[in-house]
């Protein structure tokens, strides 16, 4: 099977969907001539021309709204935010326009749009360039929120997101672009709203998504090798709609759960997952659900402080041991 980077997997998804559907176009800062700030759109301008690959001024609110307006009349825009940090400038169009249009028009006007770009922390970019907005965006009814961890999922989920008739928030891991993985030849999609068990296990469930999937998998290997615990790694892949079925099936099997996310703890994705578990699997739990999150601070610049602010393999191992009453 061919091996591709996460970046190129996304590139292939965009290319294939633009070849398949003439209503799909890509708009954003540096997507064309520059070939993408993170090179996700490499070659697309050359293949599709500047009618369908549109460089914008630095005006997130404006071009996000132009995308929503184009979707209102039936086009299928893919709007790239250079990073999700800058999307805060456009949040009015994402929340007040895109997410609510179908409802407040009484079902008349669907918004088939994808807002995509890198999120989460990279390395030493400081407070304004290092943050995970999953929980903010997943709070809004009308939006779907996707955060793939692997090249395979990134390609399959982006294709599904582009074909979806709703606004889809597509959060790419800024640190994942160079990761490689196997991609099957030919057409495939990964449906939105389905979690994926990345590693089977019996002793504790580790719930994760995006960049924290690698953290969880590494922790699971160490837990098996050094701590005698077999962890099951459940990658949410889609935050909203949340695949509670897969999640609960795992917890009912392991009776213990750790949730890992890069975002801040307060009202985080993990808080929602804990709520689902305590309501639907209360009797199956043998221990309180543990959470490992980013530190509840703006991201510091210093390398050591930054490392301490991110969810670590050691923190996941510690949480799993607590949940399993090993400590």
């Amino acid at each position: 099977m061919p091996v591709l980077t996460y970046r190129d997997a996304l590139n292939h998804a965009l290319r294939e969907e633009m070849e398949r559907d003439p209503d799909v176009f890509l708009m954003g800062e540096e997507v064309g001539v520059y070939q993408g700030a993170y090179k996700v759109s490499r070659g697309l301008l050359q293949q599709f021309g500047d009618r369908r690959v549109i460089d914008t001024p630095i005006a997130e609110l404006g071009f996000a709204g132009i995308g929503v307006g184009a979707a209102m009349v039936g086009l299928r825009p893919v709007i790239e935010f250079m990073t999700w940090n800058f999307a805060l400038l456009a949040i009015d169009e994402v929340v007040n326009s895109a997410a609510k249009m179908l409802y407040m028009s009484g079902g008349q006007i669907p918004i088939p749009i994808v807002f995509r770009g890198p999120g989460g922390a990279a390395l030493q970019l400081g407070a304004q360039h290092s943050q995970a907005f999953e929980s903010w965006l997943a709070n809004v009814p009308g939006l779907k929120v996707v955060a793939p961890a692997t090249p395979y999922d990134a390609k399959g989920l982006l294709k599904s997101a582009i074909r979806d008739d709703n606004p889809v928030i597509f959060l790419e891991g800024e640190m994942l672009y160079n990761n490689k993985g196997e991609i099957p030849e030919g057409e495939y999609t990964v449906p939105l709203g389905l979690a994926d068990v990345k590693r089977a296990g019996t002793d504790v469930t580790i719930v994760c998504h995006s960049k924290t999937v690698a953290t969880a998998e590494k922790a699971a290997r160490q837990l098996a090798g050094e701590h005698g615990l077999e962890a099951e790694v459940v990658d949410l892949r889609t935050i909203r709609p949340l695949d509670t079925e897969t999640l609960l099936a795992s917890v009912r099997k392991t009776n213990r759960c750790v949730i890992v996310e890069e975002g801040w703890p307060f009202c985080g994705v993990g808080a929602q997952v804990v709520d689902e578990i305590q309501r639907h699997a209360f009797d199956d739990l043998d221990a309180p659900v543990e959470r490992v999150t980013g530190a509840d601070v703006p991201m510091p610049y210093n390398k050591l402080l930054e490392r301490a602010a991110k969810p670590s393999v050691d923190a996941v191992i510690g949480a799993a041991r607590r949940a399993a009453y090993v400590d």
């Binding site: 009618r51 709204g65 307006g69 184009a70 169009e93 326009s97």
Partner: peptide
């Protein structure tokens, strides 16, 4: 003002 870009989006679709 939120609908000013939306209207430009529909105009963009005409051009597209």
């Amino acid at each position: 003002g939120s609908h000013i870009p939306l209207a430009a989006g529909a105009a963009f679709a005409s051009k597209y």
